[in-house]
């Protein structure tokens, strides 16, 4: 600090919130299966919609969901955006594609990345398939899927 420091014009006031997240029964089941390399959602007994990841209830019908349904790791891009601004603490380097992906047999899109393709070629309706991380890296996380990649010929 010099002899005549500049006047104060700003202050740093970081806020750090400590969370203890509990997955709940439905998400715990989902994460236990994804650790085995399987994608298991739940079907609503009212509207028959299949939700991945499951939340233990159907938001549309307002009733519990219990029936488990295993689905494939392939689907279509329902919508997407190209992220250009780095996210603090996120190791993924922009630009990258964040997409809502509707897996075959499900009725609600899940958020994931699309890679192994020029960002400019990603389009709504594109067929994509999961690129799994090596089995020895699997844990209780949807990130066992590194990203989704285009299916040949789509």
């Amino acid at each position: 600090m010099s002899d005549t420091p500049a006047p104060v014009t700003g202050i740093e006031v970081p806020i750090n919130l400590q969370y203890e997240f509990t997955a709940g029964k439905a998400l715990t089941r989902f994460l236990t299966r994804i650790r085995e390399g399987r994608i298991v959602g739940q079907r609503c007994p009212g509207c028959n919609n299949v939700y991945v990841p499951p939340r233990g209830m159907c938001a549309a019908c307002g009733i519990p969901t219990e029936e488990e349904v295993e689905v494939v790791d392939e689907g279509i891009v329902e919508s997407f955006t190209v992220v250009h601004i780095p996210i603090p603490g996120n190791p993924i380097k922009p630009p990258f594609v964040a997409a809502n992906i509707l897996l075959d047999g499900t009725d609600m899109a899940c958020l994931h990345r699309v890679s192994e393709v020029d960002n400019a070629r990603v389009h709504v309706g594109m067929r994509v398939k999961a690129r799994w991380k090596p089995r020895e890296e699997w844990d209780y996380t949807f990130e066992n899927i590194a990203w989704f990649r285009p299916v040949e010929g789509s």
């Binding site: 750090n16 919130l17 969370y19 203890e20 997240f21 509990t22």
Partner: peptide, 9 residues
């Protein structure tokens, strides 16, 4: 049940 702590800053 799975739990995980994390910090949001």
């Amino acid at each position: 049940l799975l739990t995980k702590s994390f910090e949001l800053g």
